[in-house]
Simulated scan of single mutants.
Amino acid sequence: MARRVYHVWKGRNIFFCKGRLIFGPDAKSLIITLLLILVPVVIFCTNVARNLLHEFPTYNTGYVILVVTILFTIYVLVLLFLTSARDPGIVPRNLHPPEEEICYDPSTSVDVGEGHTPTPRLPRTKEVTVNGFSVKVKYCDTCMIYRPPRCSHCSVCDNCVERFDHHCPWVGQCIGLTTYENFRYGAANRHNVYDQGCLRNFLEVFCTKTNPSRNNFQAYVQEEMPMRITREVKIDDSEGDSRTKVQDNLEIDNDLLKISQRRDAVEAVNSRS
């Protein structure tokens, strides 16, 4: 039976709209965040901006203040939604450990028949080359991958996230590769990315493409069906007549029981004859 990827996803994420929207496990905290944004705005509009409508009737300054307040509030809510409901840069999991990285430790071995086989293990770190520099990457036991540089495993969402910064409880999502642009705060002694002029700053914020998700949560996955086996049981009667061939196509859970019951019934019939 075919199911979608978000149905079988092993992380703690919450999905809506058939996998189009992905939230963190603490998405309920968004209610508090929304209240902290909307309540002050509503109080300002009803008690301050409304009175300004009559204070500056000539140039409609009061209406300008009210409109700007509403537009900035909508802008903040849109960024909040884009940050909370987007894949933050989750690295796809592996179903099995990477076989090409498995090495065998001769110091520890297991008995297999008459011989000894070295115990397979995965190195905890390995070196990769990034832009001509050698970088060590760590192995994640949960996702069964070697994490790319600047990637960390979020203990809240239980996912490996590229360019992981932190998990923000106020937005209920990880701040990573695709959500960091909507979460920029002060330059903090670093290069100010918003010193390119008003037009270029506007284009960078509203017209820059974000990195696409590496996971297609709406795709279908083919789950493995319960295994079925075909057994052949040959039964000899007491008179030496022809053999009876019984072919059973049974579930693994009850096939041996049914075969045993049929054999007992045949032997009982033969004993009576």
Rank of each mutant, 00 (worst) to 15 (best):
S260T: 04
C160H: 08
P123R: 00
G113V: 07
C157L: 09
M1S: 11
Y139L: 04
F183D: 08
S238D: 08
G240C: 03
R190H: 13
R86H: 05
V171Y: 13
N51E: 13
P88Y: 06
D241G: 15
F133S: 14
M1A: 12
F16H: 10
P149T: 06
T58A: 15
R262K: 14
P212G: 04
E239I: 05
I22F: 01
L80S: 05
V110R: 15
Y220P: 00
Y59A: 12
D141H: 09
V76E: 11
V233N: 05
H54E: 15
P118L: 03
L77H: 10
Y180M: 08
C151F: 02
G172R: 05
P106G: 05
R93S: 13
H54L: 13
G172A: 02
N216L: 04
I37P: 00
R263P: 00
R200W: 10
A49Y: 08
L53Q: 07
N201S: 06
K209W: 06
L79D: 13
S134T: 14
V193N: 07
E224M: 08
Q173A: 08
V130H: 02
R12L: 09
G172H: 01
T69R: 00
P120R: 01
I43T: 11
E204Q: 10
T179M: 12
C45E: 14
L199A: 12
P40I: 02
F217A: 07
R150P: 00
P148H: 03
E162T: 01
D158G: 04
D253N: 10
N13G: 15
P97D: 14
V269C: 12
H96V: 12
S238V: 08
Y63N: 10
R147S: 14
K258W: 11
K209M: 03
G186T: 11
L21P: 05
H166D: 09
T244G: 00
G115E: 15
I252P: 03
C151L: 02
K138T: 10
D141E: 15
I102K: 02
D141Q: 12
D236E: 13
V48S: 05
T244N: 01
T83E: 02
D26A: 09
Q247L: 14
V68W: 03
T179V: 06
Y194R: 07
I74F: 14
I229D: 11
V171F: 14
S155H: 07
S273P: 00
K28Q: 13
V112A: 09
C103S: 12
D195C: 10
S273Y: 08
S213A: 08
L95A: 11
S271C: 07
D237W: 06
K234V: 13
R190N: 15
C207D: 01
G132S: 07
Y104I: 07
R272W: 04
P57E: 09
E114C: 11
W9V: 03
F164V: 01
S271N: 12
R121Q: 06
